[in-house]
Simulated assay, not measured.
Amino acid sequence: MAQVVLTFFVAYGIVVGGAISGGLGAFLTDKPPLLSMFQLATQLKIFGIVGALGGTFDSFLQIEKILMGNFSPVIKQMVMIVVAFWGAHIGTICVHWLVQVRS
């Protein structure tokens, strides 16, 4: 259970932290920081997922074990993928809510 919570918050932190840092960089370069944060949050979602999982190859190696009839690691890895997705997605929603860019 601790690994699930950690995975969620790593994905969340990558998206939120990257968007905030990117917004600061946009401010320093005279670009609109809120718009940059909005765009970065969407773009960083996939990196949040991959970063939280520790790389994608481990996930695919665990899924290969299904051919050997060992379902436990596969289910565990699928749960981690879903949790990482939700962490990155909720991070994106929070940044979008924070900046409230009108499109």
Rank of each mutant, 00 (worst) to 15 (best):
Q39W: 06
L6T: 13
W86C: 13
S36N: 12
V99P: 09
L6D: 08
G51F: 03
G17D: 00
G13Y: 03
G69F: 03
G23K: 09
W86L: 14
V82G: 01
I46K: 00
S21W: 01
I81A: 11
H96A: 12
M37S: 12
M1A: 13
S72W: 04
K65E: 04
K45G: 00
Q62H: 14
V10T: 12
F60L: 14
K45W: 02
Q62C: 10
I93P: 06
G18V: 07
F85W: 07
F27Y: 15
T92Q: 11
A11I: 05
D58W: 10
L24G: 10
Q100K: 15
A11W: 02
W86K: 05
V95Q: 07
G54H: 08
G18P: 02
V101W: 03
G91K: 09
G51E: 01
M68S: 15
V101F: 09
A11M: 06
M37F: 09
L35W: 03
Q77S: 15
V4M: 09
V101N: 06
G25M: 10
I14S: 06
Q43C: 08
T29M: 13
V79G: 02
G55Y: 02
G25L: 12
P32G: 09
V15I: 08
L6S: 12
T29Y: 06
V79N: 07
K45R: 05
C94E: 02
Q100R: 15
S59N: 05
L98Q: 12
L24N: 03
S103T: 11
F8K: 06
V99W: 07
F27P: 02
P73E: 06
E64T: 11
G51N: 05
V10N: 04
F27E: 11
